[in-house]
Nucleic acid binder design. Sequence first.
DNA 1: GATGAATGAGTTTTCATTCAT
DNA 2: GATGAATGAAAACTCATTCAT
Lengths: 229, 229, 229, 229
Amino acid sequence: MLEELNEFLNTFQKLPREKQLKILDAAAEAFASKGYYGSGIKDICERANISNGALYKYFLNKEELFIAVLDRCQQIMVEYLYEKHTKIESSILNAIEEYLKEIAEICGKFPAYLTVYANLGSPNMEMFSERFSERFKESGKYIYEMVREAKKRGEVIEGIDERALGFLIDNQFILFLYSMLSDYHEKRFRSFMVIEDEVELTSEKKIAFIMDSIRVFLNNKKEESYPVT
Amino acid sequence: MLEELNEFLNTFQKLPREKQLKILDAAAEAFASKGYYGSGIKDICERANISNGALYKYFLNKEELFIAVLDRCQQIMVEYLYEKHTKIESSILNAIEEYLKEIAEICGKFPAYLTVYANLGSPNMEMFSERFSERFKESGKYIYEMVREAKKRGEVIEGIDERALGFLIDNQFILFLYSMLSDYHEKRFRSFMVIEDEVELTSEKKIAFIMDSIRVFLNNKKEESYPVT
Amino acid sequence: MLEELNEFLNTFQKLPREKQLKILDAAAEAFASKGYYGSGIKDICERANISNGALYKYFLNKEELFIAVLDRCQQIMVEYLYEKHTKIESSILNAIEEYLKEIAEICGKFPAYLTVYANLGSPNMEMFSERFSERFKESGKYIYEMVREAKKRGEVIEGIDERALGFLIDNQFILFLYSMLSDYHEKRFRSFMVIEDEVELTSEKKIAFIMDSIRVFLNNKKEESYPVT
Amino acid sequence: MLEELNEFLNTFQKLPREKQLKILDAAAEAFASKGYYGSGIKDICERANISNGALYKYFLNKEELFIAVLDRCQQIMVEYLYEKHTKIESSILNAIEEYLKEIAEICGKFPAYLTVYANLGSPNMEMFSERFSERFKESGKYIYEMVREAKKRGEVIEGIDERALGFLIDNQFILFLYSMLSDYHEKRFRSFMVIEDEVELTSEKKIAFIMDSIRVFLNNKKEESYPVT
DNA sequence: GATGAATGAGTTTTCATTCAT
DNA sequence: GATGAATGAAAACTCATTCAT
């Protein structure tokens, strides 16, 4: 079985990187907009400009293709998000803001992949999310470290557990991410920010709104409040 | 068109409540475990112990059945969550804890419905989430009020925006909810709490963990810390 | 089997004539517009304002209902067409013209029944047309008699076979009938008469056109030609 | 939309002609014997010995398959009937007889297609007959020309309108055609010819019977009468 | 006798996967 | 290795007929 899988992977790996990405991009777009069950192989092949049969030379089946897309998601997350932020150079407040900005940026660059990734949390995706569960710990660990360092530097309010604070901050990250990808969470954001449908809700505004609350328990005076609309 | 819809609804409404619920439950379970596109009518009918044709006497099509399930979700949320918490009698801290406990309880009672509801946030569910977007505002408003009252009573740290704080708290609620329903979010929780796979993660532990961080910016001294495992 | 059939017929016969006709009319309209296979029982019941189950008290099944409609067709034909024309009082030319006018009239009065009847000639209706085959002979016989009488009276050109002439005239009748009911045959008529789509094609014009050719071999001078448009 | 249609047509066009015809033949047979609504895709595929899915690679849906059959009908009519008779070499009487013989021949060769074509006149086929209405005019025009030429040559009785005579002759053609395809019209023919059910009614006899009446107004002496049985 | 909900085999259509070229 | 036609099981949905009330 594993050998068989490798056989497929090899064929795919031998393709020029450009073509590989074209196929994964096509798949990501399909999966993002219609979900795993709603997306058809035919549609993906047309988007990728390859033949139906070719796809089955590269991947054992739809499932493996989806996993390949998830791998690419992971890659993107690591390359654009985690690796960029392994070193906390400035204050935690800045680090958090940078992180949010980065999330906004990769959502702009790779909306389809991020959407697929975000959807892994859906309860009916458990069949796939299991394979990736190990990798989440990374993200958790990074934020925990960040908070611990900050606490040492006295940047954090007294008496708060590092892990609980890390979780709280990560929750902000996650729901910020979701709001960039799903209409539902975007509307929820608007609802809390009291912004009318007609007014544009930029990611900058969202970030300011989030920072406003985080700043509090990071012992900092609010310097500039999120502007009321 | 509306009359046509009514024709179907009437037939369904005339059924004994018990049978209605059996059908909706069956549908909710199917949709929860396999998603909208992955679930088949045949499977749902078998779970509900009705014939294929009967379902189409009750609902115009799969879509309308799904919407009926969403309506039931809404009902449950209102009945068990919102209505129970319209009056904040004690401190906000207690209110929040009660709310979390309530979430845990209805997740235990109606996991399928809650799962379906939570999945509305998936990007490929926009076709349905639009219909329900108005209703989210309610939940947001409730929490905002709660925070505002608490602030008046001096229960909240100085200098924090009510809306931002409300959002932050609601984020905790949402991700707590998700963690009750999705393996992915459960694992993420474990990761932050540093709990091994073998150790059971009860909802009580999760609630304690969340309360630990919330307590801080509600100006309260930490009385009892979340115990490390 | 026959007893069973009678059981159904009796139930139907006991209904007030008005209700009987309402049901048959509804069925005729459905069958006329969508054909036997295309028509649904539900649709017919709604048109007739009776319940689904009631229909099955009156008729064994869809097939028997269709046959009942055909019987009513037959009745109408006999009552309005054949019985009115058993006596040829005037010249055959007048008789033919009267007959055509009568066809036009009953097509106006009972378009649905006539349509169903005309459709019996469709090759995929053989299952039903067999039962009615005996009855066609009547119509043929009537026209044959008419021609024979006319020949005796010297109204018909010399040297023509009565039966062949009868057939030729009946063909005119049949295709005139079809042209009143089917778009296809109406267009064919227009094509021969060289009438544009915008110009109305009344049955009077069609009759005049047909009479124009029939008159010839009935040894009559053309008195009034069909007016060119 | 047009491109989409082409996609299907192309796949079909690429098939070997033999297979194409097998599929169209199968469909024609099904549609001829059970009508459009009565025929099932499954049945057609089995007759054609192709898989269910294959059919949907060739045609968008049942409707387009039916139209393809109609196109083939048209083709057959043009190839075997119209093209053979564009030049009237001999007398009109001969031409008519030839035409009838030709009709008999193609009915023998392609009964299913001719049946489908003939059924277009059914009132519930309007949805399809519209598309083909333009083409009927051809046939009308051809006969009109034939009559006009004959009149010039003095072959036609005096005082008869070319169009009316053309229509009359075409009616004979049409009902002769119908009698080859439908039991109902065959029986009607028998009734006029006074032929018992046991006696075989060959197309030759029918043609002789028709010619017998046509001959009259074509100014010709009856040479040999249709023999009484 | 009347009702209309229930049945389930049947319909058209789709789609992941296979396979001959 | 690539192609795209072929497969057929399964999907959503329909409808003639039955049956409990």
